[in-house]
Every structure is written in structure tokens, then in C-alpha cells.
């Protein structure tokens, strides 16, 4: 009801907070999003420093010590070949994040320009590009990824391409939709009547105004890309052994679930935590970026 005058929530109409600052503030007001951000930061740090942190090598086979439970020397236990599960989970984080970021980067790099061009020019260009996207979109994502990998052959690089390709139409669609709305705005017409070239209009005036949904979609897609990578690895189509991937570790752990549940539990938890973190951050970002949602957040913030 009443807000203490000193809180950062207080906003004076004559001195507007900058937009990015405003977004950031809304984001960090969301505890789940903050938790997600912290976990993601730790994950990235872990992935970067993986080799330094991991206590054992990824293929340090030790048959006599196979299937031993969590202990001081092996915090997450050992797998069927006596390898340290903790080390493998740590090293595998690199694979997951790498595939996630690169695949989504790929989807962004292709999807956004396609959406921009289709939405701005409309007409035939739009029809051709978007029908192509519709074709890709009509397949269930994971099925299409499997089909692409069946053609390209398994491996981490091909997995990135496959996942990236599968997510391209999503970005194309989202971008196009926003572009169509923005293109009708008065300031775009003004820019056009001033003689601005298409390229300038698209990149200077339209792109910044359609970024919000793209950013949200990027964060959410990262979560799904990591999940897709895990699914492909589970099926043996991703990273090839002995290199670890969470999905593959889950698949291997499945056979030993009775004797050594830790083989599957820890990689599973890793997937869960990572994907949930991206989702929390994505939700937080959407709340912060979506103007329609903003008032809701603010009222929530006020009433706390």
C-alpha cells in the first residue's frame, strides 16, 4: 500500500529510469530469475573450468572400483567402468552449454534475418520464406533433429546443426510477427518518408523494437536446446563415447538403476537444474520485457 520513499521502486515522473535499467530492476525483483541467473553463472564457470575442477579424467577406467556409491573420493559414485561420475557430470556440462549456445546462436543467425526480411517486405518473399519455415515447423522438433542426424551422422557438431535448424523457424516466426506490427508504426513511416534505406530501417528502427520477444525466446530456447541435446545423446546420436554427455550418462545409468542409481540420478539432476534455471531466467525476462505484463509486476511489487 504505502511504499517507503527510499526504495528503488519509487519512480519520479520527471526523471524516468532508463529502459534497460528498468528491465534489470524488474528482473532482479524476481527471486526465481535471480536464482536462475546465479545457477547459470556457476554452470558457465564450471563448464569453462571443467578440466581444472574435475577430480578425475573422463575415461579413467577402474574396473575393480566399478559401481561404488558416493564416497569421499567419488562424491557422485562411480559408473559401470569405475569412472568418476562427478568428473563426467562436470565435463559434460561443457557439452550441454556449448550445444545449447551454439545451436540457438545458429537458429538466431538464420531465423531472425529470415523473419526480418519476410516481415518487412511481405508479399512473395514472405510467402516463400515462411512456407519454407512452415515445412520445418510441421515436424515434431526432436523427430526432425533425429532425421537430420540420420543423414549427417552422429556427433556433437552435427547435433548442433540439427538442433539449430529445428529452432530456426521459431525465431523466424516470432521476428516476423513483431516486424509486421512494428512496420506499421508511425515512426517507421516517418523514417521511410525521410528517405531512409530499407537496410537502415530494418536494422536501426525495426530490429531494436522487436528484440524483446527474441531475447525471451532465446533464453527459453536455450533450455529446450539443452533438453534436445540430452534427448539426442540419450539415443546415442550426440556426443560420442567416451566423452560424456548428460543424456548419454542417463541412458547408460538406466541399465544399472538397481545396482547404481547414482549413475542416472546425478546427470538427471544436472539436466533438471540447468533447464529450470534457463526457464526461470526466461520467465523473468519475459515479465520484465513484456509491456502488458509490466503493470502486473509493478502492482505486485507495490503490494509486497
Amino acid at each position: 500500500m504505502t511504499v517507503a520513499p527510499s526504495t528503488p521502486m519509487e519512480r519520479l515522473p520527471e526523471k524516468p529510469v532508463s529502459r534497460s535499467r528498468e528491465i534489470w530492476q524488474t528482473l532482479i525483483a524476481n527471486r526465481l530469475a535471480v536464482a536462475g541467473l546465479v545457477v547459470l553463472a556457476l554452470l558457465v564457470l564450471m563448464a569453462v573450468l571443467a578440466e581444472v575442477i574435475a577430480p578425475f579424467g573422463i575415461n579413467d577406467i577402474d574396473i575393480p572400483n566399478r559401481l561404488t556409491g558416493p564416497s569421499m573420493s567419488h562424491w557422485f559414485g562411480t559408473d559401470d567402468l569405475g569412472r568418476d561420475v562427478l568428473s563426467r557430470v562436470i565435463i559434460a556440462s561443457r557439452v550441454s552449454l556449448q550445444v545449447g549456445f551454439i545451436a540457438v546462436g545458429f537458429a538466431l543467425a538464420f531465423g531472425v534475418p529470415i523473419g526480418l526480411v519476410a516481415g518487412y517486405y511481405r508479399g512473395k518473399t514472405d510467402s516463400i520464406l515462411m512456407r519454407l519455415m512452415d515445412i520445418l515447423f510441421s515436424f515434431p522438433a526432436i523427430l526432425l533433429a533425429i532425421a537430420i542426424l540420420a543423414v549427417l551422422g552422429p556427433g556433437i557438431r552435427n547435433a548442433m546443426v540439427a538442433i539449430g535448424l529445428v529452432y530456426t523457424p521459431i525465431f523466424a516466426r516470432i521476428t516476423r510477427g513483431s516486424v509486421i506490427v512494428v512496420s506499421e508504426e508511425v515512426y517507421i513511416r516517418a523514417a521511410r518518408s525521410l528517405g531512409a534505406r530499407d537496410g537502415r530501417i530494418i536494422f536501426r528502427h525495426i530490429l531494436p523494437n522487436v528484440l524483446a520477444p527474441i531475447i525471451v525466446q532465446t533464453t527459453l530456447s536455450l533450455a529446450f536446446a539443452i533438453l534436445s541435446e540430452a534427448a539426442l545423446s540419450f539415443l546415442g546420436l550426440g556426443v560420442q563415447p567416451p566423452n560424456p554427455a548428460w543424456g548419454r550418462m542417463l541412458a547408460e545409468g538406466r541399465n544399472f538403476f538397481q545396482q547404481a542409481p547414482w549413475m542416472g540420478i546425478f546427470p538427471g539432476v544436472a539436466i533438471l537444474v540447468t533447464v529450470m534455471s534457463f526457464n526461470f531466467v526466461g520467465d523473468g525476462l519475459r515479465d520484465a520485457l513484456d509491456p502488458k505484463q509490466k503493470s502486473v509486476i509493478e502492482s505486485r511489487g507495490q503490494s509486497v
Binding site: 575415461n59 579413467d60 577406467i61 559401470d80 567402468l81 546415442g236 563415447p241 567416451p242
Partner: peptide, 10 residues
């Protein structure tokens, strides 16, 4: 075969 190949790799 996958298991064995990993052991042979090591």
C-alpha cells in the same frame, strides 16, 4: 561394443 570400445580406448 560401446562399452568395450571405451575400455580399449583407455
Amino acid at each position: 561394443t560401446v562399452t568395450q570400445a571405451q575400455v580399449i580406448a583407455a
